[in-house]
Design a protein around this nucleic acid. Structure first.
Length: 199
DNA sequence: TCCACGATCGGCT
DNA sequence: GCCGATCGTGGAG
């Protein structure tokens, strides 16, 4: 399996969003490798009121204005981080939020990141709860302010080819947790996978 | 300078 | 189903 090339990310955002399903997100931390298959995403376009870049470039969203192929991580609700893949051309301001992945490698490390202090249940629900939401994914993979703006063409964080998901297995529906632009069906996920985020 | 609020989560009713 | 946590951001003044 090989690393996705720049040309993968610089296509139209809705195309990239659907195509991200089935790809493998990889993070190297020292000798540890964390990886997971992307199973749910949401697209945010520049002329879309729910998009952070809708009102132009600011200190927070400036990474979104790079050409596709960067990681955009932001802090929200005073508690959580969420991670996006920057898409399309330089100067536009579009990205795809990663909402859920299926863990593959580094599951023990992810559990430590997610359940740092208290003891947790050792049943299958742990595996699902590890990465079945955007902030859960970011926490499991240790994605915070420091990772904002990292190039996905480098060797620390990148995506691998993974599997091709046929259109018949991709569900398109409305995005979660937004107040504007609700009607757009830009949330995409792989049908019948147990890591779908809730609500 | 101020202040309302958010691309969420987990716990409680 | 609902609510509180918790704070950086950016639009308003």
């Amino acid at each position: 399996m090989h690393k996705l090339p720049p040309s993968f990310y610089t296509r139209r955002t809705l195309t990239v969003a659907k195509d991200l399903l089935g790809k493998i997100f990889v993070r190297k931390i020292g000798k540890k490798i964390l990886s997971g298959k992307i199973v749910e995403v949401e697209a945010y376009l520049h002329n879309d009121p729910a998009c952070h870049a809708f009102r132009g470039m600011t200190e927070r969203n400036k990474v979104m204005f790079n050409e596709g192929g960067y990681l955009y991580v932001y802090f929200t609700y005073g508690v959580h981080y969420c991670a996006n893949i920057v898409t399309y051309k330089k100067g536009i301001g579009e990205a795809v939020l990663i909402r859920a992945v299926e863990p593959i490698e580094g599951i023990e490390v992810m559990k430590k990141s997610r359940y740092s202090d208290v003891s947790h249940r050792e049943d299958v629900r742990d595996l699902y709860n590890l990465t079945n939401g955007p902030a859960k994914f970011a926490q499991a993979f240790g994605l915070e302010r420091e990772q904002n703006g990292i190039s996905l063409l480098g060797d620390e964080i990148f995506l691998l080819q993974g599997e091709q998901i046929p259109p018949s297995k991709i569900i398109a529906t409305t995005r979660i947790g937004i107040t504007a632009g609700k009607e757009r069906k830009w949330r995409f996920y792989i049908r019948d996978n147990p890591w779908i985020s809730k609500r």
